[in-house]
Design a protein around this nucleic acid. Sequence first.
DNA 1: TACAATTTAATTATACACAATTAAAGTTAC
DNA 2: GTAACTTTAATTGTGTATAATTAAATTGTA
Lengths: 149, 149
Amino acid sequence: MKTDETCYDSLRLENQLCFPLYAAAKEVVKKYNPFLSEIALTYTQYIAMMVLWDKQEISVKELGEYLFLDSGTLTPLLKALEKKGFVTRQRSESDERVLIVKITDEGMKLREKAVLIPQQVGSCVKIDEDEANELYRILYKILGGLKND
Amino acid sequence: MKTDETCYDSLRLENQLCFPLYAAAKEVVKKYNPFLSEIALTYTQYIAMMVLWDKQEISVKELGEYLFLDSGTLTPLLKALEKKGFVTRQRSESDERVLIVKITDEGMKLREKAVLIPQQVGSCVKIDEDEANELYRILYKILGGLKND
DNA sequence: TACAATTTAATTATACACAATTAAAGTTAC
DNA sequence: GTAACTTTAATTGTGTATAATTAAATTGTA
C-alpha cells in the first residue's frame, strides 16, 4: 500500500477537468496567431469581427453577450479595431447610453482574407469529427449551465 | 433558397470549435475566484500550488512544462507566491541557470484549506460523469496533438 | 584551450481579462 | 414630478499571457 496522502487526490493536477480545459483553450488560441497576424488581428479581435461580419451593426452590450466579454475588455478592443479602420463607434440617437459598433467596408473586405483561417487552424487540432462534435456539444452544455447561477 | 453568403459559413461564431473552448475555459476559471480569494490565490497560482503540493520542489522550467506556461508568466507569479510566504526561490548549486522553487510549511498548510475547492467548483459544471470523462479524454488528446507540431 | 551553440531565466513590451467603481441616462414607484 | 433604482459603457487597478530580447552559464567541438 502506498503512503501517499490520497485524501488530497482531488488536488492533483491530473485529476482536474478545468486544467486541461484552461490549457487546451490557451494552446489552441495560440495556434491562430501566425494566421491572424497576417490580417493584423488578435484572437479576441477576430471573434469580435466574426460577429460583425455576420451582423454589421451591434451594441457593445449585445456583442459582449455573444462573446462572454464585458466592456472592460471590449472598449479598448473596439477602439483598436476603430483605429485600424475596421469598425466605427457611435452613440445610439435614441438612447445615448448605448454605443453602436458598425463594421466598415474595409472591415467587410477583411473577411475574404480570413476565410481560410478556420481550416488552417482546424488541421492542428487532431481529433476525429465525432470527437469534435461531442466536444462542441459538451462545451456549450457547460456554457449554458454556467449562465443560470 | 437563402441569399446569405454561405461561402463564409466557416467564419460564423456558432461554427467554431475554438470559441466555446475559449469561452468555457474562461467562464469555468472565473467560477474558482470566490473560493480562491478566500485563500489568497489566483487560478494560475492555484494550479502552480497544485504541482508544488505534489512535488514540494521543482525547477521553473519543469513547472512550466506541467502548466503549459513560460517563465514570462511564471517569474512574476512565483515572486507573488514567495511574497505570500508559500514558496521559496533559489538557484540550483550545481547549475546556476536553474531556479528551484520549493514549497514552504505555510504553503503545504494551504492544501488543507484548498481541498474542498474542486468539489465546490465541480458542482457548477453541470455535465454527467460520462461527459466529463469524455471531455477530459478529448482535451488531453488535443493537448497531446498540439505538442508535436 | 577557445569559441560557437545551446539552455535557462529574466526583462520588456503589448494585449487581453475581470472586479470594482464611476458617470450618465433612462425607468419606476410613489 | 421627483427621488430611488436600473442600465449601459467607460475607467481604474491588478493579474495573467505571449513574443522578442538579453544575459549568464554550460556544453560541444575543432
